[in-house]
Design a binder for these strands. Structure first.
Lengths: 285, 285
DNA sequence: GCAAATTTGTTCGTATGTATT
DNA sequence: CAATACATACGAACAAATTTG
């Protein structure tokens, strides 16, 4: 009984949830009922519930009650490119067909195009001088009406000057920008590098994705730099920053020869992964 | 002033932190001082600080004070395989050299080997019947003494029976298990598929990684299924489950031809990524 | 459509415990 | 051992959101 009361209560409720005694979507007893059940004050009960909320196990709805969290059906994005289109990672038309294959309704906003002088984080990745003009194209993606990702792609203005004027149009580029640049400028993408990290959402991101404003749902940030051939090795010509809420997204990376179909459902993945480290922490080195 | 007081106070402190007025590691005023500064009760101040804690912006140390969070230097793992060894994703020796290249001291526990009948989450991925014997090898990895990842790999017992008896030894397999299987059984890995998701840590994982016990730091779960050639397409022969705390890990995926060196530091990555969606949320579709 | 009842949210005061210096 | 700072716990009152009658 070394643990404080609110943690004991939280643990007790947690066990009930994880054992399935309290199923997803089910309502917990009210704070008053729990107060009486556990013989604690309402504030202590609230501390216990706050803990469960922070763990993502329950959510409270003012005027209604406290409910066991219902997991959203995650969507799976394949990060490795289709070798023909050079796409992948939720880009352009490739993302759309991947979504549609799974019986969902994808939608993307019209791109918002801007010409701006490159900030450091863009300039570094495109290996151009800070302040050089770049075209940025911003887009949001939805699946079945739920906001799924935010995306910003930057191209050196030089590509427009050389004839790729459609980059400035606030319209989707049919077949994708990579194919367009190849057609128009003979610019071939020879590879790309993705960089992944997880962080808590900015306030804007939390608002846009309708995430709880206390940062308990992380976002996954994906930065893709695409390269064309150059005399001294690959040269970057495009950088895309994507943001995905971590509670509704999974990612797949295929290397070499792998089966076309995934072996297991996205929803399984979540529960399976928890079993792995069961006794690991206690194990000595 | 629609917002409750504790949120206003939290926002004010948040602005100070994000503007740099309060730098990493710096101590905030004590609860009593903040109470006087803002003219609120101590409990309200504590609510504000709890919010900042949940956002990962500050951490409190009993008896000492509240401090702006110091970010750990993230470590970067390359997920795509070295085509020669077929490794990648923090596996075996490949992981070690990647760590050492960056001037860190890697260490891995001796593998803990078990023979067990395959649970569903292993059997599905190896396409074997549930209950079939599998060899599991568990390992923990450290970088400069900090626990960095937990890993469990499962092989069908059939591989041991066919002669790969070293899989049962509680020792590292020099050159990696993939090379060993190739040497011993002529079993060539032709590809692998990674599956990534982010979730809150289990209690064991939080303990092992010394993460705060309220689940505010997520873990990234990586499931890698490796394939060999078969008459009807790729056949899985190995599945690895890895868990990485999201606050100290980044990942890189190379596709096609890309520069050897990364364009930017791991620590930049974090801050850069936040700038991207600045005005995105407010923008109409 | 409105009022009452229910449920969670916010804020305060107070007392005492625990960790660190 | 004393002082300081955060942690736990209780009680109370009122506010805000939602459902119900």
């Amino acid at each position: 009984m070394a643990e404080p009361m609110y943690k004991e209560i939280a643990q007790d409720l947690r066990d009930q949830i994880e054992s399935g005694a309290l199923g997803p979507g089910q309502q917990l007893p009210t704070e008053i009922e729990l107060r009486d059940q556990y013989g604690a004050s309402r504030n202590t009960i609230r501390d216990a519930i706050k803990r469960l909320t922070s763990l993502g196990l329950v959510e409270t709805r003012p005027g209604q009650g406290t409910f066991v969290t219902q997991r959203m059906e995650p969507f799976v994005t394949t990060l490795t490119a289709d070798t023909e289109t050079g796409l992948g990672g939720g880009e352009g038309d490739a993302a759309f067909s991947e979504v549609e294959e799974r019986g969902k309704k994808p939608r993307a906003s019209k791109p918002r195009v801007e010409v701006q002088s490159a900030a450091a984080y863009i300039a570094t990745r495109l290996r151009i001088a800070e302040g050089t003009d770049v075209v940025t194209r911003r887009q949001e993606r939805y699946i079945d009406g739920t906001p799924w990702s935010l995306q910003l792609t930057a191209y050196p203005m030089e590509l427009v000057e050389r004839g790729a004027s459609d980059l400035l149009k606030a319209q989707d580029i049919p077949g994708g920008a990579v194919a367009y640049l190849n057609r128009t400028l003979g610019l071939a993408q020879i590879g790309h590098r993705d960089r992944i990290l997880v962080r808590s959402p900015s306030q804007d991101e939390a608002l846009y994705f309708k995430l709880p404003d206390d940062g308990r749902v992380s976002v996954l940030s994906l930065v893709r730099t695409a390269y064309r051939a150059g005399p001294d090795g690959p040269v970057p010509f495009r950088v895309t920053f994507s943001v995905f809420p971590a509670d509704r997204n999974q990612f797949v990376i295929n290397t070499g020869d792998v089966p076309k179909e995934l072996a297991e459902a996205a929803s399984d993945q979540y529960f399976d992964a928890r079993n792995v480290t069961k006794d690991n922490a206690t194990g000595a080195e």
